[in-house]
Amino acid sequence: MSINALIVDDEEFSRQSLYFLLGEHFPEVKIKGIAQSVAEARKMLKTVEIDLVFLDIAMPNEDGFNLLPDLQKVNSFVIFTTAFDQYALRALKASAIDYLLKPIDIDELKNAVIKVIKLKTRNGNDQLISDNIKAQLNSLEENLSDIKKINKINLSHSNGFQILNINEIIYVLADSNYSIFHLENNQSIIASRHLKEYEEILKNSGFSRIHKSTIINLKHLSDYTNKNGLIVKLSDNSEHVVSRRRSSEFLETVRNYFKH
């Protein structure tokens, strides 16, 4: 299977290094264009069928996120290439969209490209691929509307993925390398990522890690007591222990949360 790719980056060194890495390690990835700006990329997307876009974030005039509406129209997978930006990375992680930190590590590049190849091969169905891409890009756009806060999260599981509004989440439990999301209406989802990753994604959005195995949504906090150790009660009537080492941080987080 061949994949038509477009590289979008304003830095010549970044463009050329990625071009040579792909050429050396992925002969199935055919570079159909190299753009120095979002405006140039738009023009190319109108004339060339592109399956995958390697997209820089920080560029003059328009950043890479401005290309999202155009990518939705053409159903292209996107892998962002970026220098570190904690808020942008949190939005990308929450939306389950791949990214590569500069300078690009070859192993991370391989993992990202192989993932796209598997998705195209496994799905086969063009409409399903289109729906998946649009859902991910929509969730990313919503998360970017307030860059410091996550609104939606994309949970990968054994049958694909599910996009949730974070207000639906009551609490999250660790289960080895997986995480179990407990939701409103007695629903639950087993997500294929470690609890630590979700802590990083959700920590500025009204969530608190109260135990090594538990994250709670403060929106669903109904009561807490320190009568026999610190215990929290949530909107589904479940009760959870706050570990002693996390109790001070939890109480400070609660005070700040309910100030707003």
Rank of each mutant, 00 (worst) to 15 (best):
H157Y: 15
S158F: 14
N159L: 11
G160W: 03
Q162T: 15
I163L: 01
L164T: 11
L164Q: 03
L164W: 11
I166G: 00
N167I: 11
E168R: 15
I169Q: 04
I170V: 15
Y171M: 06
Y171C: 08
V172C: 05
V172E: 03
A174G: 14
S176P: 06
N177V: 11
N177P: 10
N177K: 07
Y178C: 06
S179G: 06
F181I: 10
H182T: 08
L183W: 10
E184F: 13
N186M: 09
N186D: 01
Q187M: 13
Q187L: 10
I189S: 01
I189Y: 00
I189H: 01
I189E: 02
I190D: 00
A191E: 00
A191K: 00
R193N: 09
L195V: 08
L195T: 07
K196F: 05
E197P: 05
E197V: 12
E197Y: 11
Y198T: 03
L202N: 05
N204P: 06
G206T: 03
F207R: 00
S208Q: 03
R209F: 07
H211I: 06
K212H: 08
K212A: 08
S213N: 09
T214D: 08
T214H: 05
I215V: 04
I215K: 00
N217D: 06
K219P: 10
H220Q: 12
H220A: 13
L221Y: 02
S222C: 15
Y224M: 07
Y224T: 04
T225K: 14
N226H: 14
N226W: 09
K227W: 12
K227R: 15
N228Y: 12
N228T: 10
N228C: 13
G229P: 11
L230F: 09
L230S: 02
L230T: 11
I231R: 07
K233N: 08
K233R: 14
S235A: 11
E239W: 11
E239R: 13
E239G: 11
H240R: 04
V241T: 14
